[in-house]
Design a protein around this nucleic acid. Structure first.
Lengths: 210, 210
DNA sequence: GTTTTTGAACTGACCAGTCAGTGCAAAAGT
DNA sequence: ACTTTTGCACTGACTGGTCAGTTCAAAAAC
C-alpha cells in the first residue's frame, strides 16, 4: 500500500504538493476578498487544479480554511517562541525578548502578509463555523507573549501592576496593525524603521527628548 | 449607530429614521458574518422594513455599506478630536491628550463594537469596491493622532526621533485590537482596567517596578 | 397630492458540492 | 515477459439552491 516515492509521514507527496498549492491559492484570495466572496472555482483555478480536486483533498471550503488557519498560526507561534528562547539563551533580558518577538512578528508578517490579513479580518467575527478554531489558535499566539511577561514580572524586571492578558493582547495588536498598515499604506518603509518605532513605544521612549 | 431624531442635514426625518434603522441592522449583520455573507433580505428583516424599502433608500447593497462606513468613521474622528481639544483646553500636556484619545477610542468601541469589528475586518483588503472610501476614512482617523504627536514634538514634550506616521498607526492599532480583544475574549474587564493597561504601555511604565 | 413604504413575485447570474469517468503507476496474475 | 487488476489522484460538466436587484400596484404616512 502507498506509493512510497518520498519522505513524508502521511499521504503521498503528490497529494501533499496539491494541498500546498491549494493553501497558497486560498490564502491570497481569501485575504483579498474575504471567505464568502471567494469561490472554490477561483481557488482551484489559481492553484492550477480542477474543482473536484479541492473536494478530493478537503471536505469542504470551510474545512480547507480551518486547516489553513491552523497551519499558519503554527508557523507564527513557532517563530515567536524561537525568538524568545534565542534571546534567553543569549542572556538577554525579558524586555529584550519582547523586542525580539516584535521583530519576529514583523518578519513573519512581511513574509506572509496575506495570512495575517485574513487572520485579523476573521478573528473577532462571531457566529462563524470556525469560531472555535480561531479561539484556540489566538490563545496559542497570545500565550507566548503572556509567558514572557510573566517571567519578566517574576524576575522583577517588569512592573507587578502589569495586567498580563490585557498587555499581551495590546502588544500583539500593536504589532499586527502596525505591520498591516505598513504593508498597505507605507510600503516604502523598511522593516528596521517599523521595528524601531514599535521598540520605542514599548520601551517608553516616546515622551522625553532623545 | 443611534438615532438622534432631529438635527440631521437633509431629507425628511421619516426617511432618515428608516436609513438609521437600516444602518443599525446592516452594521451588526456585516460585523458578524462579513459583507458577502450578509443578504439584503436579512438586513431588511432585522430593520423591520420591506426589501423594497432598502432599494428605495440606497442604490445598492454596497452603497449602503459605503455610507455606513463614512457615517461611522465620522463619529469616531469627531470623538477623538473632541477628546484632544478638551484636554488642551484644560491645559493638559500632549501625552495627556493621547491618553484622553485612548479613552475616547475605548468608549467609542464600547458603544459601537460592531462597527469597529467591521472596520478592522475590511480595512486592509485590497481589490474591493469601497477600497478608496476606506483609505480616505482611515486617513482621517489616523491624522487626528498624528496632529497631536506633531504638536507634542514641536513643544519638545515628545522625542524628535518619533516616526509620526508609524507611531500613530501603531497607537491606533493598539487601541483597536486591545478593545476588540477585550470585548470578544475578556468581557468581564472594565473599561478602566483596559484603559489603565494601555496607558501604562503608552507611558513606558511597563519595565521598572513601582 | 406627494412622498415613502409595502410585499410579493420574478429574473438571471452565480456557486457549493456531486459524481461518473479518465489517466496512470504499481501490484498481481499468467 | 506480458497482460490484467487495483486504487489513488484528479477531472469537469452538471445540479439544486441562493441571492442581488427589479417591478409595480396598492397602501400608508405626511
Amino acid at each position: 500500500m502507498e506509493s512510497s516515492t518520498a519522505t513524508s509521514g502521511g499521504g503521498s507527496s503528490r497529494r501533499e504538493a496539491t494541498r500546498q498549492k491549494l493553501y497558497e491559492a486560498a490564502v491570497t484570495l481569501i485575504a483579498e476578498q474575504g471567505f464568502s466572496a471567494t469561490t472554490v472555482d477561483e481557488i482551484a483555478e489559481r492553484a492550477g487544479v480542477a474543482k473536484g480536486t479541492v473536494y478530493y483533498n478537503f471536505a469542504s471550503k470551510s474545512v480547507l480554511f480551518e486547516e489553513l488557519l491552523r497551519h499558519g498560526v503554527g508557523l507564527l507561534t513557532a517563530s515567536l517562541r524561537e525568538a524568545a528562547e534565542r534571546t534567553a539563551g543569549e542572556g538577554g533580558s525579558r524586555v529584550d525578548a519582547l523586542d525580539a518577538m516584535i521583530r519576529a512578528g514583523l518578519v513573519f508578517i512581511d513574509r506572509y502578509p496575506a495570512f495575517t490579513q485574513l487572520y485579523v479580518a476573521e478573528l473577532w467575527r462571531t457566529n462563524r463555523a470556525w469560531q472555535s478554531t480561531l479561539l484556540v489558535v489566538r490563545q496559542e499566539a497570545v500565550a507566548v507573549v503572556e509567558d514572557v511577561l510573566r517571567e519578566g514580572i517574576a524576575s522583577g524586571e517588569l512592573s507587578e501592576e502589569l495586567d498580563i492578558p490585557l498587555t499581551a493582547a495590546a502588544l500583539v495588536g500593536m504589532v499586527l496593525v502596525a505591520a498591516l498598515d505598513w504593508q498597505a499604506f507605507q510600503p516604502e518603509r523598511s522593516l528596521d524603521e517599523v521595528h524601531a518605532a514599535l521598540s520605542r513605544l514599548l520601551q517608553g521612549r516616546v515622551s522625553g527628548g532623545r
